[in-house]
Design a binder for these strands. Structure first.
Lengths: 263, 263
DNA sequence: CGAAATTTTGATCACGTTCAACTTCAGTGG
DNA sequence: CCACTGAAGTTGAACGTGATCAAAATTTCG
């Protein structure tokens, strides 16, 4: 599907320059959707990385209530950001996919408001927030990148609010599945009609504000309707237009950063 | 309650420099919570403002689906960001208070995902997104400010997700009321135990994923429990600790931007 | 003052939760 | 290779919360 060796992602925008070796980096692929990065930009970014962390499945990455102060760029693997309530219930706030940033927004607040746990084995590139801010002051472009990422994060949250608040369980689930597919597409990790789905039904129910049995029934409904199929932690969209129609799903992409010519 | 003429907000942090005339500006008060602004910073910011808009109650400010490309700093008044669904239901994504930014995150996406409507008469300071980005490139501090604001926005959204997804209606409402109070406090627009609450019950129910009758009953419950009192679009917290306990409310404040010494 | 918006109350009922049991599957050690 | 274990998925029955609909009371505003 992807023939041009240097093309990072399939949109009709000017392909950004992405030096070899960065091509497979989902975070960079994501950035190229809304900003042009030069070789030296990438070098500067790379220089910040303190270490590349392999993380084991089920490992706690951030603990609710503790300061964090790091940024973790997900090179590979999946995680969830969640909150445990007094009554033992859990609400999953967001799913963290390759190319996402752990510590956004947590590191910008006086205490992490949620916990993060790895859903699969992961590899993380970690840098200190201070160091990133430092870079931002030399290269404002990166501060804008961070703003754009935070705005995307907020937009995803907003859609979840709408889902949980006013959509039916079926619409909610359909919307969620399309969201994951869309976000994985943005980092070139999805096919046209399928993508990974390494989350358990319990996780999905905790994200969508449903009980596990009801999520199960809802999923069965989508399968019975011929809208999706699931096999081996992969979801297949067998009727994408119908599903998008059902969920009223409209993908939201960032605009390009309007960088002034002189910069 | 506020005796020091130059004190912008009541936290034990070094009081930021806030030149006269800006003292009453809620947006500036908000920024001073996490960044120091010099006189020239403020001048630069002020220079961007295209115009100061008076907005009438009920006026639509952003239309779902259209690009926006502006930033609107709320000098005064309240608004809601919402989405209308196919089935006629409405979900309110967030309440916009004095000091908030209209167009965050909307202006960073290829199309505004939600609509915004004024709840009260408002006055807005408007600037073009391009112009702001331009400033960010000269003064990276402002790009970081924008990031911090977006992160706060995301944090507020996250809490709403948790509320709607897994909290009981009573907890939900309690949490919401405390959120509004906390945010108004951050711009010096709230007393210790009361604040404005210009939203109708319909709005609150649309924000919290409840029906109007049920929200009404829930509110009555809080009142009956002696936790709050409402009069003339103002809410009084008659038992703040008990309410915070009920809602498991933990205010989240931004950390200060770790600006390097040289900047 | 009259009209419209908002708040309040009540009765009914559907949807989704809860709880419990059972199945299936992946991984592990005997 | 099979028995065992724990996690994940599936199904059913009963219950309760909160939605829905309708109507009255109250407030707001032109």
């Amino acid at each position: 599907m992807n023939e041009l060796p240097l093309r990072i992602i399939d949109r009709n925008r000017p392909a950004a320059v992405a030096p070899k070796g960065w091509r497979e980096e989902p975070f960079i692929a994501r950035l190229c959707n809304f900003v042009d990065l030069t070789r030296s930009d990438l070098d500067a970014l790379f220089a910040l990385i303190e270490c590349e962390h392999p993380i084991k499945k089920r490992r706690e990455l951030v603990l609710d209530g503790y300061p964090f102060g790091k940024l973790g760029f997900i090179k590979d693997g999946f995680a969830v950001r969640y909150k445990l309530l007094r009554n033992g219930k859990r609400q999953i706030v967001s799913f963290l996919l390759p190319g996402d940033v752990i510590g956004l927004p947590g590191s910008f607040l006086d205490r992490a408001a949620h916990s993060v746990i790895a859903v699969t084995d992961m590899t993380l590139r970690v840098c200190a927030l201070d160091a990133f801010v430092n870079l931002c002051c030399r290269e404002p472009k990166f501060a804008l990148v961070l703003t754009w990422l935070a705005a995307q994060e907020a937009a995803v949250y907003a859609e979840r609010i709408i889902s949980i608040g006013r959509r039916t369980p079926t619409e909610r689930l359909a919307h969620f599945l399309l969201e994951i597919h869309s976000r994985l597409s943005a980092v070139d990790r999805a096919d046209d009609a399928s993508c990974e789905l390494p989350f358990t039904q319990e996780m999905m129910s905790d994200a969508l504000g449903l009980s596990v049995p009801h999520l199960n029934r809802t999923l069965r409904q989508l399968r019975a309707g011929g809208l999706v199929a699931i096999d081996d932690h992969r979801i297949f969209f067998t009727a994408m237009p119908a599903l998008a129609q059902l969920a009223q799903f409209q993908p939201v992409n960032p605009v390009r950063i309007p960088m002034p010519a002189f910069a």
